[in-house]
């Protein structure tokens, strides 16, 4: 049974460095494919670091690997991923008249 989470895509140092090194390079690609989850959620779902998970949003779905966030960094129920191709695939097109699609705080199922 998929569980509901809120996904927060954001910038990271490695993603920023990866942009300069090249978007087809290893660092950038690794970083934008790394999903972070609270350790207690990992435990509850029986997940270990580097397990593959499917993230489903109302606009798309992607598969990637998951890793535990550092204790205290991410509250239970929240997921984090670096901005990039994957997070964009999960984002809807509606900008609610602002020009900006809702790119943070996306409802997803794991």
């Amino acid at each position: 049974m998929p569980e509901l989470f809120i996904l927060i895509p954001g910038r990271t140092l490695r993603q920023g460095r990866g942009i300069s090194e090249g978007k087809f390079g290893q660092m950038y690609q690794d970083e934008i494919h790394a999903l972070c989850m609270a350790p207690e959620d990992m435990q509850r779902l029986g997940l270990a670091n580097n397990d593959r998970v499917r993230i489903i949003s109302p606009s798309g779905q992607v598969e990637t690997t998951v890793a535990a966030a550092k204790p205290g960094e991410l509250p239970s129920g929240l997921l984090f991923i670096a901005y990039g191709d994957l997070s964009s695939q999960l984002m809807g097109q509606d900008t609610h008249g602002s020009g900006m699609p809702t790119s943070k705080g996306i409802d997803v199922r794991i």
Partner: peptide, 12 residues
């Protein structure tokens, strides 16, 4: 007019 002439909307 954001939402009308913004790139993301125009393309989508």
């Amino acid at each position: 007019n954001p939402g009308e002439y913004t790139a993301s909307d125009l393309l989508a």
